[in-house]
């Protein structure tokens, strides 16, 4: 039982981070119909910047996070402006290929700057575990969970109530109509990429604090894709629930099945995805196309 709870808590924490990164996928997909394969690299950008600031420039953790978030915001804007803007009105499939290219380019660039060794964050959160009932949880897990949940709530409120949030949802719904409202589609795309880069960066920093940072952290992007598809690529609540589902199931599969089937942890999310899509082709919360009768 205790082993189970341990796995469950770990799964929930990772799930919350997945949910946040999946939100980045969903945002870009909703607004621009594009699946962004460079999401994982955006995770790395944030983690590396924060880490370098702390290690090389002795910047305090919180400040390094804020600076990393600002840098990621700018990176998102820059990618949109320099690369993706010129693909507005091009077929979606070409844009998806561009994000794949972007992923390789960013990865290469980061390996040049930071090499491929695993780097570890200086200890930020106290090592002493907290006892929750019978389960011991390390503080970094609790902080990660808290920060992810807080951000998820902030973004949910932003989309629900702010004018820019309404405009982003409107653009996702009908681009031409949004344009006719005076909503600058370019502005919305730029905001979308910037926000997606920021949530990924925070996800990267949290995961980096748990596992250390090396280029393979970027492959989280690949794990998060099933999360986003599972919840329905265009649903933010779906991304959140998908994140927790995949996080928990992946951890449980890893804990119980890995001794018999090594590597099952990495495969589990995709198996779950296939099973869910067989029953619900739009994902758990994906919008079907509205057909008035």
């Amino acid at each position: 039982m205790e082993f189970f709870l341990q796995l469950l808590v770990g799964g929930i924490v990772v799930g919350a981070i997945y949910a946040m990164v999946a939100m980045g996928f969903v945002l870009i997909y909703k607004a621009t119909d594009v699946i962004n394969f460079s999401q994982g690299e955006l995770l790395l950008v944030g983690a590396y910047i924060s880490l370098s600031l702390m290690v090389q420039f002795q910047v305090p953790f919180l400040l390094s996070v804020i600076l990393a978030v600002i840098c990621s915001f700018l990176v998102g804007l820059l990618l949109e402006r320099l690369v993706l803007r010129s693909f507005i009105n091009e077929p979606v499939i070409s844009v998806i290929m561009v994000t794949l290219g972007l992923s390789s380019a960013l990865r290469g660039l980061m390996q040049v700057i930071w090499s491929t060794d695993t780097r570890v964050f200086p200890t930020v959160f106290s090592q002493a575990p907290v006892k929750l009932g019978t389960v011991l949880v390390s503080q970094v897990y609790l902080w990660s969970l808290g920060i992810s949940l807080l951000l998820l709530v902030i973004f949910a409120l932003f989309f629900r109530y702010s004018l820019l949030g309404v405009a982003m949802r409107a653009t996702a719904d009908d681009q031409q109509a949004a344009l006719s409202m005076g909503i600058s589609v370019k502005l919305i795309f730029a905001a979308t990429w910037a926000i997606a880069a920021v949530v990924s960066a925070i996800g990267g920093i949290l995961l980096g604090n748990i596992n250390g940072v090396n280029p393979s952290l970027g492959y989280i992007g690949l794990t998060v894709l099933p999360v986003a598809i599972l919840g329905g690529l265009d649903s933010i609540p779906g991304a959140i629930i998908g994140g927790f589902t995949i996080g928990v199931l992946e951890n449980l599969a890893g804990g119980y099945l890995d001794p018999f089937l090594p590597g099952v942890k990495q495969v589990a999310p995709f198996v779950i995805l296939v099973l869910v899509l067989m029953v619900k082709p739009y994902g758990l919360f994906g919008k079907p196309i509205i057909e008035r009768v």
Binding site: L163, V166, A167, R169, A170, D173, D174, Q176, A177, A178, S180, M181, G182, I183, K287, I290
Partner: peptide, 26 residues
């Protein structure tokens, strides 16, 4: 100048009130 497009083009997945708010964007 505001154009009401042919075929209505409401934001189908938004509520009525959010549609109206989108109109007030500028």
């Amino acid at each position: 100048i505001f154009q009401v497009m042919e075929g209505r083009h409401v934001f189908e997945h938004l509520t009525v009130e959010d549609n109206l708010l989108a109109g007030s964007f500028t």
